[in-house]
Structures are given as C-alpha cells and as structure tokens.
Design a binder for these strands. Structure first.
Length: 421
RNA sequence: GUGGGUGUAGCUCAGUUGGUAAGAGCGCCGGGUUGUGGCCCCGGAGGUCGAGGGUUCGAAUCCCUUCACUCACCCCA
C-alpha cells in the first residue's frame, strides 16, 4: 500500500492553486488599503496558550487539538486558530508601545481534529484580521465592512451578515444566572445534547437545531435584552456605523460563537451555498483576552475567513492561469536539440516563459505538446535550419511561420513578445 | 464519537434475476507517406471491479467483516 495523506489533510494541486493565489493577493491588496500589516506567526505553540485563550471547556481544547510532547517533554499544539498567537506576539514584543502597529492580518494553516466534511478539514486555512487597543464601535464596523468588501471583491454570491452582542462580563454573569434558572425549569424537555450544554455552555443551546429545543429557546431570556448600559450603547454604535456605510445586516440574538474570549460585538458572514458549514467568515470583539494572556489590558477585535470555504464559493474560472507559455522550442535531431537546450535557457534568462521536449519525439508529437501547453509560438529547430543558421518561428494562433536568423534570435524574440504583451 | 451514502481505467460513470460484459466518454500514447498542433478518422496502453472471507458449478453482482472516501450530527472558519 502506498502511503496516503492523513485524513482531512489535503493536497492543493496546481489546477486550483490559482484560486488560492487570487484569494491571497486580493486579501493583501484590500487589507493594505485599510492599513493592515501582515504578521507571520508560528504554527506550533505551547499548548497552554490555546487552553487559556480559547477556553478549557470548549470543544476545540477538549478534543480537537493536535497536541503532543516534544523531545524535551514540553506540551505543544498545532494551532487550532490564529488569534491567540497574534495576541501572544503582540504582548511578547510589546507592540502596544508602537502605536503604528495595531492592525494585523495573517494567513495560513490551522489544525483541528474533527470529522471532515464539506468545507471542513483537519488542516484548513484561515485569513485572520486583528485590531488591538481600539474599542470604538467604529473599529468593529470598519472591520466588518472590510470583510464584506473583501468577499465582494472576490464576487462571492449571496453573502448575508449576522451580528450579535455577547455583552461584557458585567452583563453576561447575571444573564447566565437567569438563563440557567430558566433552563433548569425546562431541563427535562431538552434534547440530550442540550442537557449536557446546560451545564457546560448554556449559551450554546441557542444554536441547537432540534425543533423542540428551538421552541424552548424562543421563550428563554436573550442576552441582547440584558445588556448593560455600556454594552447596549456600544452595540448601538456598531449598528449606526454599519448603517452609515450602507451595510445590510441581520441581528441574530441566537448566534453564538464557540470561543470563550468573545465579548460584545460578534458577527458572521453566511452563505447558502456551502451545505452545513455556512460561515465563510466570522469574528468579534475580545476585550479581555490580552489581559488574560498576561499582557496589558487592551481590547481587541477581528475576524477569521475560512479559505477552503472561500475557494468552494469561487467561480470556476476565478484564478485561472492567464499567462500561458510564450514559446515552445521543438527540436529535430541531436545537434538541433543541443542547440535548442542552451537557447531555451538563454530565452528564460531574458524573461520569457519557455518549454521544450527533452525526449526525441517526432515533430508532430512536439507540436501536439506545444498546443497542450498553450504555447503561443513554437520555434522549430531542425538540421535544415541549423545548416542555414536559422530557425522557424510558428505563430500557433495564426498558423503562420517564418524563418529567423539564429544570430539575433534572442533579441528578435524578445522584441516580438514584448510587443505582444 | 454517532448516523446515512458511495467504492469498477488517470477522471466522470454504465454494467440486466448471479451465466465470455471487464465496458463507454473524456484524458494519455501512437498512426492517417519525407519535418507541423487544434477538428476528424483509425489503432494502442491502462483495471487483482477498495480489501478479506463466505454462499455457488460460476460473484463486479448475493451475505458477513474491514478499510477508504463522502455528507450530516456535534462543533466551527
């Protein structure tokens, strides 16, 4: 049995790499316009970092992390998300002392040991955006706006924005109590999962898809109605700023996000085209996280985009290669092949995209291959031409060809291709 | 971890109540008169029918087991 890749950990083959490059370049361009800077963080971190940031009782930490001891016995984890690392780096390098460094983005692979399905893999890729030390609602609105601008730039269809507020510890604590009281009263009517959730993470019950639980939840107290004055004002501010940017959104009091560190504004960009995994991007504010990780008490906000999900939503033709090979060099005979081999290298060094056939195939076979490679031109080099010190340049689209002297062939070709490009 | 679906050529898939059906299309390779691509025509290579076991005179087909893939639950991007 040949060795296969690990379940849920996939190769990205050349025929789709164009889509990835498109997504990455559009992200870089747009985020840069919003004055975000790229930061690159490690894939491996101490396990403790994620345990403390994401939350000990979350599914991610409890059962989805790739965790193992290194050779010194230190517990390490392949990052299941990026925010914790960016915050860690911010603290570690004391970037709060550099006011120019507050808005970051990063992209790369994340790892979670879940059962793979459409739009969800064990190694998956995210683009992450984080803003530190700014808690004005304008910043939340701008971050959300940037997410939508990005999705729009990639022509992702039918995106809907859902927003919610998770409040702050001040309003969440009393709310949790009243919710707990309510749920206790109806606990025997909850589904098995929700019975468990009631004790571990009651907010998650709002997410349950079982009908009976949905009915119970309708009468349950909702966090949005229990926000403290400050959080209420803050959420209103976010909505006002979104309105001023003409961003359409749905307030979804039942939207719950899985990481413990979220506070106040949370949001998701939803698509109907992905099956069960409908969130293309999501995020929110995490005001207590930096302090909890031992840094200064600075607020944060940001989002993550699922790149695989994005790729699935991209138009088939998006990111298709536009730059075909300029030239294919077809050689006939050993002498010609030798000459062609060095000529090919010379042309490449002068900036042309050139391919040749290394086997001694028939001209017909070489022409066929040139056609497959989408070469716009073929340079035919045979003994006849060699004897004359020339080569035939064939235009594949026009099906015409002419003889060119070998002496000035490089500059001749360069001139032609430069003109055409 | 729990369900459902699917495993036949590189890809997408046919394959009759078990009985010379190991097949198609695309792709790949070659040929169609000296050294010229696409379109067309002709030919070729390529599969222990996911694996193991069982039933049978006979299994791609029926039964069991197992593995893989996939979708969904859970959870999340």
């Amino acid at each position: 049995m040949a060795i296969k890749a690990i379940k849920g950990i996939n190769d990205i083959l050349p025929d789709v790499v164009g889509k990835w490059q498109l997504v990455e370049s559009v992200a870089r361009r747009i985020f840069s316009n919003f004055n975000f800077q790229e930061i690159r963080i490690p894939i491996l971190e101490k396990t403790e970092l994620f345990a403390r940031s994401i939350g000990e009782t979350t599914d991610i930490v409890e059962k989805e992390m790739y965790t193992f001891p290194d050779r010194n016995g230190q517990l390490l984890t392949l990052r299941p998300e990026a925010t914790a690392s960016v915050v860690r780096a911010f603290i570690e390098h004391k970037l709060h002392l550099q006011p120019a460094m507050r808005k970051f983005y990063t992209m790369g692979p994340m790892f979670r040991h879940e059962r793979p399905q459409k739009g969800r893999y064990r190694q998956f890729h995210q683009i992450n955006v984080e803003v530190f030390a700014m808690d004005d609602p304008m910043v939340d609105a701008e971050v959300i706006y940037m997410l939508l601008v990005f999705l729009e730039a990639l022509k992702i269809p039918d995106i809907k924005l859902h927003i919610n507020s998770m409040g702050c510890p001040d309003c969440r604590l009393p709310f949790r109590q009243s919710l707990a009281d309510y749920l206790e009263g109806v606990s025997d009517k909850l589904c098995a999962d929700c019975k468990r959730r009631r004790l571990t993470n009651p907010l998650r019950i709002f997410d349950c898809k079982v009908d009976s639980c949905g009915k119970l939840v309708e009468n349950a107290p909702v966090l949005l109605d229990h926000l403290c004055h400050e959080c209420e004002k803050n959420f209103q501010g976010v909505r006002d700023h979104l309105d001023s940017l003409a961003v359409a959104y749905t307030i979804d009091p039942f939207m719950v996000r899985g990481l413990d560190y979220y506070t106040r504004t949370t949001f998701e960009a939803i698509t109907p085209h992905l099956g069960a995994q409908d969130a293309v991007g999501g995020g929110g504010r995490y005001d207590g996280l930096m302090k909890a990780l031992g840094g200064p008490d600075l607020p944060g906000t940001g989002f993550a985009i699922g790149m695989e999900r994005l790729i699935l939503l991209l138009d088939d033709k998006a990111g298709a290669a536009t730059d075909s090979h300029n030239l294919f060099v077809a050689c006939l005979g050993e002498e010609a092949k030798k000459k062609g081999f060095s000529l090919v290298q010379e042309l490449r060094l002068s900036g042309l995209s050139v391919e040749m056939d290394y086997e001694s195939k028939s001209l017909k076979a070489q022409m066929r291959r040139a056609d497959k490679l989408d070469a716009t031109h073929v340079l035919i080099l045979g003994d006849d031409e060699l004897a004359k010190g020339a080569a035939l340049l064939r235009d594949m689209d026009a099906s015409t060809q002419e003889e060119i002297s070998l002496k000035k062939i490089v500059e001749e070709l360069l001139q032609r291709f430069k003109l055409e490009m």
